[in-house]
């Protein structure tokens, strides 16, 4: 493999890791606050559809992004209502949200566009276009570092940079602000937060809303950045891979970045090569497809360091009377 191919694979790794990273951080906020969320997939799908639909109707990708975030936030609201207000089972609510999104997106797409459950292809202002960072062209002549800067770091859409900026931002919010401290506390010991006079319900709703926001950006990137338009089930399990990355990262922001880059790399390699020949041993493409899930199971089983979720995760909080 020569240097240029390597750069191209890494470049596509960055693109494919972006939706995973946004969804993973979304799940991180929610689960750190004690709300399990297996509905990441559905929220991304909803956002992907509404961003593509509105972008194609108005011609403005920014309105599309807003619509996508709104669609994702509505599902977050349902999840919050079910799991915080009515103290229902968070996992069941997540499953319902995934199906709701899978069904509604196709239903509405068929009603609005009559193209068999897809939106028209986006072009021009309907998509997030690549941004060329300053000096990318002039520096591309510099050996090694030049192409890395021009090919790998420059030339992505704005949402990719947003996603990567979200990692330090998430770390700062969670570990350096009062809100973050309370948010983590509500996922570990909600009774303590309640005793301190802080609203458990309010904090959890805030976490779920942030989760909706980030999933919204993830979905919008899928439909308007990575691809040009919405197609049925276009998230294709990315929400679950993000969930896997979250566990792999043991609910920590910087580790989430590494996990998403790793899973993005697996996707990029699977996309580029069908079967990989490693000195006589052929690794079929299906192994690459399944590897994120296998790695997650291995991590969950505690063979390579134990993944311990937030203590109050999945438990509805009932005030003692």
């Amino acid at each position: 493999m020569d240097f240029l191919t390597l750069l191209q694979v890494l470049d596509s790794t960055v693109r494919l890791a972006t939706p995973l990273l946004l969804a993973c951080l979304a799940g991180l906020f929610s689960e750190r606050a004690g709300i399990f969320d297996i509905g990441l997939e559905g929220k991304m799908l909803m956002a992907a559809f509404f961003s593509a639909a509105v972008a194609s109707l108005t011609g403005s990708v920014w309105l599309g992004l807003l619509a996508g975030i709104a669609g994702s936030m509505v599902l977050s609201g349902i999840h919050g209502l079910a799991s915080i207000t009515f103290r229902g089972n968070q996992l069941i609510s997540g499953v319902a949200i995934n199906f709701l999104a899978a069904g509604l997106t196709v239903l509405i797409a068929q009603d609005w566009f009559s193209q068999g459950g897809r939106t028209p292809s986006l072009m021009g202002g309907g998509r997030f276009n690549a941004i060329t960072l300053p000096f990318a062209d002039t520096l591309s002549g510099v050996p090694i570092l030049g192409p890395i800067y021009a090919e790998l770091i420059s030339g992505h859409s704005i949402l990719v940079y947003v996603a990567f900026a979200c990692v330090p931002l998430t770390w700062w919010i969670l570990f350096r602000t009062r809100f973050g401290l309370r948010l983590r506390a509500v996922g570990e010991a909600p009774e303590a937060v309640d005793t301190a006079g802080v609203s458990v319900v309010g904090l959890r709703y805030a976490a779920v809303a942030i989760c909706g926001l980030l999933c919204g950006i993830a979905g919008a990137y899928l439909a308007t950045g990575l691809q040009a338009g919405f197609v049925k089930d276009m998230t294709a399990g990315r929400g679950y891979i993000a969930l896997a990355a979250l566990i792999f990262a043991k609910w920590r922001p910087w580790h989430a970045l590494s996990a998403c880059l790793l899973f993005g790399l697996l996707q990029a390699v699977a996309l580029r090569y069908q079967n990989i020949d490693l000195g006589g041993v052929i690794i079929p493409v299906q192994v690459m497809d399944a590897l994120p899930y296998i790695l997650t199971v291995v991590i969950l089983a505690g063979f390579v360091g134990k993944a311990i979720p937030p203590r109050a995760g999945g438990e509805p909080y009932v005030k003692e009377r």
């Binding site: 349902i78 209502l81 079910a82 799991s83 009515f86 103290r87 229902g88 089972n89 968070q90 069941i92 609510s93 499953v95 319902a96 949200i97 995934n98 199906f99 709701l100 899978a102 069904g103 509604l104 196709v106 239903l107 068929q110 009603d111 009559s114 459950g117």
Partner: peptide, 25 residues
Amino acid sequence: TNIPRELIVVIQALVILFTGALDNM
């Protein structure tokens, strides 16, 4: 009709939501 099969997925989601997650409601 013009109603795609995905209507059933929506109904399924609503059933899971109401009989499962929103039971307390």
